[in-house]
């Protein structure tokens, strides 16, 4: 089963890289860009057919390793 996890900084946490990307896009002439948040993307192949078990594992690793929950949020996408 292929699962993807996206990790982004929480809304209240300053994202300087996102800010720079946004400013650069504006400099390129994309005036209507309102905000950019930069994050990380993980593509995980899991040898598990049981959807419930898979969900439990991915939730666990997202909290344990992929995300620092003090400053980051994650979202999981099951394909």
């Amino acid at each position: 089963m292929k699962i993807s996890v996206t990790v982004t900084l929480k809304k209240d946490v300053l994202d300087p890289q996102g800010k720079v990307v946004k400013q650069t896009l504006k400099n390129l002439g994309y005036e209507n860009i309102e905000d950019v948040r930069q994050g990380k993307f993980f593509e995980i192949e899991l040898n598990e057919n049981d959807q419930v078990k898979a969900k439990k594992i991915i939730e666990e690793i997202s909290k344990k390793l992929l995300t620092n929950t003090v400053i980051e949020d994650y979202s999981i996408n099951y394909k």
Binding site: L14, Q17, N68, V70
Partner: peptide
């Protein structure tokens, strides 16, 4: 506790 972010001026 806490967290260490990137330096403010990158």
């Amino acid at each position: 506790p806490g967290v260490l972010l990137r330096n403010k001026k990158l």
